[in-house]
Nucleic acid binder design. Structure first.
Lengths: 128, 128
DNA sequence: CCGTATCCAAATAGATACTG
DNA sequence: CAGTATCTATTTGGATACGG
């Protein structure tokens, strides 16, 4: 009759899923991480290409996010010992394994926007 | 031969998905939002039950996150005009529609942890 | 070209006393 | 009970000059 347990406290299964969800968010939740991941799903890119593609990100932050993705093993950093230097960023298989999740997030986000922001173009200019 | 286009700039489709992904993250990405959502997936709860279930959250922050979830229409707030006051929080259908996504996030998070943190229990106590 | 170092701003989270 | 009001701390992001 009761659901989960008498006090509605978080049960073990929920706790474990919660922890895993939080972990996922900590990995992909950075300000530019989804952008970077979407970029790299199209194929490997050099640092400067990323910088150009991702408008508005500063060098410091871009590098920070890349380093985090790297230490989370989503991104591989390949350094070619040349002059001038060349560095390529590429998704690891773990990184590529995010694609379905990112797609689902995109789908849900689109749905949510449609449901919560019904038909903007029908309201001409916003009176107040 | 070329992929997407010549300069590897973000194309329209990627841009749209990126935007939707960012939107999803802005909705569920708060510090306690996944916790709250997992709780409410088990059923409606009163404010104080949430407060007790979610250890470590302060009142201010809990209310803030609930208000954001409410204004994003994931959570319904039901006020009973009684003394003492009673308020229940419940997922809307839009909130419930997050369940598959949260499940997938949990699955990916668990997988990622397994791949990046191999077999903790094999290292006895951590020497350094 | 590919960053790092430094400094700064903004957003987010937290503790806690108080109120209808 | 269910919050709000303050105040503070921490975390995150940003601009930009400089270095290997």
């Amino acid at each position: 009759m009761r659901k989960t347990n008498s006090t509605n406290a978080i049960n073990e299964k929920t706790l474990s899923r919660l922890c895993s969800t939080a972990h996922t968010l900590s990995v992909i939740g950075g300000r530019w991480k989804p952008t970077i991941l979407w970029c790299l799903l199209d194929g490997k890119m050099r640092y400067h290409e990323l910088k150009k593609s991702i408008k508005g990100v500063s060098e410091r932050v871009l590098v920070l996010q890349l380093r985090e993705l790297e230490s989370d093993q989503l991104v591989k950093r390949i350094i070619y010992p040349e002059v001038p230097p060349r560095v390529e960023y590429e998704l690891t298989s773990l990184g590529k394994s995010l694609e379905p999740l990112l797609n689902q997030m995109a789908s849900w986000g689109a749905l949510h926007k449609k449901k919560t922001q019904p038909a903007r173009e029908l309201e001409p200019a916003g009176v107040n």
